[in-house]
């Protein structure tokens, strides 16, 4: 059998998804046995120009991680879409914006001002901001354009499959490669490597009646290792999050942050979570609610940690 052409790309991402690919450990050799890697910026030295020369559709599988934050991300996304038979939005950032998309609560001007002018460690007396072009004696230099919004991959190009997680677990990565090798692919548009049930469903902790008097941040409490974390006042997003990760964070006594994305049927993970949290507060009066809410410092950032780009409101706008 001819080897697959495989591309791995990172756009606006932290690099964790690429590390997760390396974490398949010795299976990476099995991947190398079935696939020719044609692009993998984190590990190999291909040039964009090499990929640009390839015929449309000549990449069998592209695992694309990272959100679209600037013009380079967009340009490469379009190129890889054209060259790839199967384009996979790989990880939370590509699927729904991920951590980078928290920046959608601000706009471009806010961000540039903060980063290049206001931060205490910045010395920039001339107030220079990044430019897309700059003439120098040796020729013009170019930088990508920084967009006003962080997009999910499918807000920019068509996506064939979604593999959730921040990052996806190595086990799931291996399954996806195998599915493509064997031609055993689910219907287009499917979420691969996750369950259709909630994380709570897969969670082994003891669940009782949920009535919460106080919310804690994880450094403020030593939790009972057997009991549901939400019941103990930690903002665990299990009830609204897809299962499939094997309750990794819960096993480490950390509440779920929601990286596997909304359960099927949930339009907006943050709004849905808000709905459930509201219901389980043990309060009867606005004053009691106020007191319990003191424990929730950043609801938008916490409940949309991985999904701002594709949420209903998408981010903030100055009114």
């Amino acid at each position: 059998m001819a080897k697959l052409n495989l591309a791995l790309y990172w756009a606006a991402a932290c690099g964790g998804c690429d590390v997760a690919v390396l974490d398949v450990n010795e299976k990476i050799l099995d991947i190398a046995a079935v696939a020719n890697i044609v692009l993998w910026p984190v590990a190999l030295d291909h040039k964009y120009a090499d990929v640009a020369k390839m015929a449309p559709g000549s990449i069998d599988l592209c695992l694309f991680n990272g959100a679209i934050r600037n013009s380079e991300n967009e340009q490469i996304a379009r190129m890889l879409r054209e060259k790839s038979q199967v384009l996979v939005a790989f990880g939370s950032c590509a699927i729904s914006g991920g951590i980078p998309a928290l920046a959608n609560l601000k706009d471009r001007d806010d961000i540039l001002r903060r980063v290049y002018l206001e931060t205490p460690s910045t010395v920039n007396p001339d107030g220079v901001l990044p430019q897309t072009g700059c003439p120098t004696p040796v020729g013009d230099l170019h930088l990508p354009e920084f967009y006003d919004f962080v997009y999910s991959l499918d807000q920019v190009v068509e996506v064939d499959y979604y593999v959730p997680g921040c990052p996806p677990t190595p086990q799931r990565i291996w399954e996806v490669v195998q599915a493509v090798v064997s031609g055993n692919l689910p219907p287009r548009g499917a979420t691969v490597g996750a369950l259709d049930k909630s994380l709570c469903d897969e969670c082994q902790r003891v669940k009782r009646d949920k009535k919460i008097k106080r919310f804690y941040r994880s450094h403020e409490i030593i939790t009972d290792p057997e009991l549901c974390l939400l019941e103990q006042g930690l903002l665990c997003m299990g009830p609204v999050t897809r299962g499939g990760c094997g309750t990794q964070c819960i096993n480490a006594n950390m509440p779920c942050r929601g990286c596997y994305g909304p359960l099927p049927g949930v339009t907006d993970q943050g709004a849905k979570y808000l709905s459930s949290i509201g219901a389980i507060m043990d309060a009867r009066t606005p004053e009691e609610v106020d007191e319990i809410m003191q424990g929730i410092v950043d609801p938008a950032g916490t409940f949309y940690r991985f999904g701002m780009s594709t949420s209903l409101l998408k981010g903030a706008v100055k009114q």
């Binding site: 808000l274 609610v289 609801p299 903030a316």
Partner: peptide
């Protein structure tokens, strides 16, 4: 309506972060 009463302030706190007055 107690659920309404409990969700509303949290929803408003969140909406403010989204720039909604």
């Amino acid at each position: 309506n107690y659920n309404t009463l409990k969700r509303y302030p949290l929803m408003m706190q969140m909406l403010e972060q989204f720039g909604v007055e």
